[in-house]
C-alpha cells in the first residue's frame, strides 16, 4: 500500500467574483495512478485541473505535488505538463519543433533537443510525421504530437483536459488504450478530465465525481459504480434505479440486478407499474416501467431471459431486487 501522494489538494477553492467554481475540495491522488475527474460541464473539473497545472490561480487552499507546496509556482516549475483540449500545437512549427519547444525554452542546443524530440515522437508512434505541420495531421495524430510535447519535459504528473472528446468513437477507443499503456509504462500520474463515465470507468484507478464545485465521491471505479454515495453519482454514472425512501435518502439499485415479474407474484422488495418502453440492445433488453409511485425505473435483462417470458408495452408488471443489491444514497 502506497502512502505517498503525487497530488494533494487541501481545502482548495476557486472564486470568480461572487461565483464559486470550486468549493473547498480535498483530494489525494496516490503515486503513479490514473485519476479521472468526472462530471457534467460546469462542475468545476476543468478549473480544478487548471489550478493543479498553475494556469488558474487558487483563491484558497493549497496544491501539493509530490509533497511540495506548488500553490504559487508557475506552471513549468511544478513538475506537471498539460495537454490542452484542442491540443494547442503551435501552427507555425513542425512536429519536431513543437515537441522540442520545451527544451528550446530551457536552452538545450539544437542537435540534442531535436534528437530527444524524435525519441518522444517515437514513443507516441509519430516518427514518420516528424516534418509535418500540425495542419497536415489528423486529430488523432495531433494528439500524439501534443502528448509527446507534454512528456518531453519529464513531468511527474500529466494533466489531460478532455483529451478524447475531439476524436471519432473508433479512434477514441484506441487512444484510450494507448493512454493507459503510456501511463503504466512511464509510471507517472495522469489526471484526465472527462464528462464520459464510460471513459472514466475504462481508464481510472481513481474516479473523482464532481458536481457544483464539490467532490461527490472519489474512489476506484468499481466502488463508485457499486456503491454510489449520492443520488447524483448514481444518476450521472447511469445504470441505476433510484427508489425514494423516507428520511432524505434514496435507494440505488443497479438496473442489471433488477428483474421483472408478473404483477400478481409476491416479490419483496418490489415496485409495481406499467411497461412503457422496450428496447432490444443486443446482449440485453431494456425495459422501462412507469411505477405507481410515479418514478420511472429500468430493468436490463439478459436477452435470453427476456424472450422466455416477454413483456409488452402497456403490461402491468413488478420490478423486484434483492436487499443485498440496494444501497442507500444521499438524495441530491
Amino acid at each position: 500500500m502506497s502512502t505517498r501522494f503525487d497530488v494533494e489538494l487541501i481545502a482548495v477553492t476557486k472564486r470568480y467574483g461572487p461565483t464559486v467554481a470550486v468549493d473547498n475540495i480535498d483530494l489525494r491522488i496516490p503515486e503513479q495512478s490514473y485519476c479521472c475527474l468526472l462530471g457534467p460541464s460546469g462542475c468545476g473539473k476543468t478549473t480544478t485541473l487548471r489550478m493543479i497545472a498553475g494556469h488558474e490561480s487558487v483563491s484558497d487552499g493549497d496544491v501539493l505535488i509530490t509533497d511540495q507546496n506548488v500553490t504559487n509556482l508557475p506552471p513549468a516549475k511544478r513538475g506537471t505538463a498539460m495537454m490542452f483540449q484542442n491540443y494547442a500545437l503551435f501552427p507555425h512549427l513542425n512536429c519536431v519543433d513543437n515537441v522540442a519547444f520545451g527544451l528550446k525554452m530551457r536552452g538545450v542546443g539544437k542537435a540534442p533537443r531535436q534528437a530527444q524530440a524524435h525519441e518522444f515522437l517515437g514513443l507516441t508512434q509519430m516518427t514518420a510525421f516528424a516534418d509535418r505541420l500540425p495542419s497536415q495531421l489528423s486529430g488523432g495524430q495531433q494528439q500524439r504530437v501534443a502528448l509527446a510535447r507534454a512528456l518531453i519535459t519529464k513531468p511527474k504528473v500529466l494533466l489531460l483536459d478532455e483529451p478524447l472528446s475531439a476524436l471519432d468513437p473508433f479512434l477514441r477507443g484506441r487512444m484510450r488504450e494507448e493512454l493507459k499503456r503510456l501511463q503504466s509504462e512511464l509510471g507517472i500520474t495522469f489526471i484526465h478530465v472527462t464528462h464520459s463515465q464510460e471513459e472514466a470507468m475504462a481508464l481510472a484507478d481513481l474516479v473523482v465525481v464532481m458536481e457544483g464545485g464539490r467532490i461527490q465521491q472519489a474512489d476506484d471505479p468499481r466502488h463508485v459504480f457499486d456503491r454510489p454515495k449520492t443520488a447524483f453519482v448514481a444518476r450521472f454514472l447511469g445504470g441505476h434505479n433510484l427508489v425514494p425512501r423516507d428520511g432524505g435518502t434514496e435507494l440505488a439499485v443497479r438496473t442489471d440486478r433488477c428483474r421483472l415479474f408478473a404483477i400478481d407474484e409476491t416479490v419483496e422488495p418490489s415496485l409495481s407499474g406499467a411497461v412503457s418502453a422496450i428496447e432490444y440492445q443486443g446482449t440485453r433488453v431494456q425495459v422501462t416501467l412507469d411505477t405507481d409511485l410515479g418514478v420511472r425505473v429500468v430493468s436490463h435483462l439478459p436477452d435470453e431471459e427476456f424472450y422466455v417470458h416477454p413483456f409488452h408495452i402497456g403490461d402491468r408488471a413488478r420490478l423486484g431486487w434483492s436487499h443485498a443489491d440496494a444501497h442507500p444514497v444521499i438524495a441530491n
Binding site: 497545472a53 503551435f90 519535459t153
Partner: peptide, 29 residues
C-alpha cells in the same frame, strides 16, 4: 487568437518574452 497557445508555451517553460517571440509573433506575422 487562441490563448491556449500562450498557455501551452508557458506550460513548456517559456518566459513571457519567449512566448511573444517564439509563439505569438510568428502566428500573427
Amino acid at each position: 487568437f487562441n490563448p491556449s497557445y500562450e498557455e501551452a508555451a508557458r506550460d513548456l517553460g517559456a518566459s513571457p518574452w519567449q512566448t511573444l517571440r517564439h509563439v505569438v509573433l510568428p502566428i500573427i506575422a
